[in-house]
Design a protein around this nucleic acid. Structure first.
Length: 575
RNA sequence: CGGGAUGUAGCGCAGCUUGGUAGCGCACCUCGCUUGGGACGAGGGGGUCGCAGGUUCAAAUCCUGUCAUCCCGACCA
């Protein structure tokens, strides 16, 4: 490709609306352009990067035994009503009506469609297992799109779905995908960590996410997930799923006798702990949530934080939020109290489900809200002044240095970008949508399914987050839009231009993906652009031409060597 | 959903307080000059100042509404 023909506009400055480095660089280097909030044009250079990633994905998926197909982007509401997700998916599902007022939606994911394909096409266990995948645009109407391609509303995803006859088969399919994913990301030049995760709105039981770890001290602040991991045994999990060994309950000898104690203006645990001069860990905190429209009280030790996803899962909910003040007033009125935030306790709450975190069950002589303003019950004990709730679960957010659930070593935390995920769906969709096959024993059985996603466009952005410097992008060779760029220093030097043409043609002949910067620009412009765009190799033709030498620069290391044109060509051909 | 900020040429911004012919840098076009890390000079093209109302002789500027974008937050009791 000649630079004078390449459709690309690099910018001298970063766009003002970009926050993270991948977004800034991709816009500035002319890869993407925002069309509207969370929706981007992929310009020619970007499209080549995406194609590269897609092709790596295709090769690995195909060799893992999966088959590519393509499902519609627009889907009928009926399918979603069948699975039950029409009513629970929420506002992220972009709904629309066709001219006959039929309800439709833009596909945020394709479990419903693939299940309908499976139930029509797979009749016998003899046809199993099957793994089908597609690479396609998805649309999710995110509350707050940001970070460029890392969290757009429209994005490119590879989604695969497996059908098996039994759990054993699913385990195998899952394992095969996990291995394929590791290879895919490795080939894309990304180190990933496979971490346990919550299965979220997609449903199902087991799931893992592939995270590109982003150190907090690096330039990249793009990691949206907290990942807890054990440096000793390798345990790792998303914070929405991570567990840790329960630390021993602390006791405090200060309040041995149960009594109502005045605690004026202690609206927070911190204030209460300070006022009573006791550790936060001997306070039982009571938080009111709304899960799928129902009130829930969550009890947890004062020094710990509730993990909302875990709490929501206790009630198999789809939606969770902390209660508003007016809702708390309503609960208080219904229960015959008038306490406000800071003084609420579980005792006597009406129409509120109560769940206690494991951290509170061993508390002794603790402090707890008693639904009277400016007062707390001190020296409380379970079964004496307050009943221990029947529902006890792990609803706490793990903290750094908590003990690893596998080996008790202290856990560490880091930020991660989720580039892929794999789920064991089980029969969630096949049962709901009556997708069955005839098994060996002649019985009709629902498929055991799995689903497996890779964010193609996000993977590209993650690669930029990990591979860049102050001058621009440093694409890994495997996903770079072009392999090499030839820069003749002076476009008016006939000898340089002739050599550039010669090398260019030779490389083209050998199918090397090459750009010839044939623009009438000063050297600085061409060199800056080459660095910004991030082509892995650069051949610079300048003064050394008199000794039959060119500069050969490797962008990943920014190392330059002087070699002959023939050697340069040979290096590139043999990559 | 709450708070804050911003909408002026492809990009980055000034002008608004105090209303009076719409500006600067980059990019783009022409000519000259220049050619190893985003040169220089001269000339030129491009904007219904987000949109809609209102006030006024006159609105980018003041007022009202609206839309969009960005950031932060969304309550740990």
């Amino acid at each position: 490709m000649r630079m004078t023909n390449l459709f690309v506009q690099t910018l001298r400055e970063y766009p003002s609306d970009a926050e993270v480095i991948s977004h800034k660089l991709l816009v500035r280097a002319g890869y993407i352009r925002k069309l509207t909030n969370g929706i981007y044009n992929y310009l020619p250079l970007m499209q080549r990067v995406l194609r590269k990633i897609e092709n790596i994905v295709r090769e690995e998926m195909d060799s893992a035994g999966a088959q590519e197909l393509l499902m519609p982007f627009v889907q009928p509401a009926e399918l979603w009503q069948e699975s039950g997700r029409w009513d629970v998916y929420g506002k992220e599902l972009m709904r629309l009506k066709d001219r006959h007022s039929r309800e439709m939606c833009l596909g945020p994911t394709h479990e419903e469609v693939i299940t309908s394909i499976g139930r029509e096409g797979i009749r016998s266990y003899k046809q199993l297992p099957v793994n089908l995948y597609q690479i396609q645009s998805k649309f999710r109407d995110e509350i707050r799109p940001r970070f460029g391609l890392l969290r757009g509303r429209e994005f490119i995803m590879k989604d695969a779905y497996s059908f098996d006859a039994d759990e054993n088969g699913l385990d195998k399919s899952y394992e095969i995908m996990a291995k394929a994913y590791s290879r895919i990301f490795e080939r894309c030049g990304l180190e990933t960590k496979m971490v346990q995760s919550d299965s979220g709105a997609i449903g199902g039981s087991v799931s893992h996410e592939f995270m590109v770890l982003v150190n907090e001290d690096s330039e990249s602040n793009a990691g949206e997930n907290d990942v807890f991991y054990c440096p000793k045994c390798g345990y790792s999990a998303n914070s929405n799923h991570a567990v840790s060994v329960l630390s021993e309950a602390q006791t405090d000898g200060k309040y041995l006798k149960s009594e109502i104690t005045d605690t004026p203006n202690t609206h927070s645990i911190e204030e209460l702990s300070e006022f009573l001069n006791i550790p936060e860990s001997v306070i039982c905190k009571c938080l009111i949530y709304v899960v799928d429209g129902k009130y829930v009280a969550a009890l947890i030790r004062g020094d710990r934080t509730v993990e909302e996803t875990k709490l929501m899962n206790v009630f198999a909910g789809n939606d969770i939020r902390i209660a508003r003040n007016d809702e708390i007033e309503e609960i208080m009125q219904n229960s015959g109290f008038n306490a406000t935030i800071g003084f609420i306790g579980p005792k006597g709450l009406k129409n509120v489900e109560i769940v206690a975190d494991e951290t509170v069950k061993d508390l002794k002589n603790f402090v707890i809200g008693c639904n009277q303003n400016d007062k707390h019950l001190t020296g409380a004990n379970w079964g004496v002044e307050v009943e221990l709730p029947e529902k006890i679960a792990d609803i706490r957010l793990v903290e750094e240095n908590d003990k690893c659930p596998e080996c008790s070593h202290p856990l560490k935390v880091t930020k991660g970008i989720e580039v892929g995920n794999i789920f064991k769906l089980g029969t969630k969709y096949s049962k709901a949508m009556n997708a069955t096959f005839t098994d060996k024993d002649g019985q009709e059985k629902p498929f055991i399914m799995g689903c497996y996603g890779i964010g193609i466009s996000r993977t590209a952005a993650a690669a930029v987050e990990k591979h860049h410097d102050e001058f621009g992008i440093k694409w890994p060779l495997s996903i770079a839009p072009y392999t090499v760029i030839i820069v003749p220093v002076s476009d008016r030097d006939e000898e340089q231009m002739n050599l550039a043409e010669k090398i260019y043609n030779e490389l083209l002949k050998h199918k090397v993906e090459v750009i010839l910067d044939d623009r009438e620009e000063r050297a600085g412009v061409k060199l800056k652009d080459a660095d910004l765009i991030g082509i892995p190799y650069r051949i610079t033709i300048g003064k050394a031409i008199k000794d039959n030498l060119v500069e050969f620069k490797t962008r990943s290391t920014n190392e330059t060597i002087l070699i002959t044109p023939e050697e340069a060509i040979q290096k590139l051909i043999s990559l």
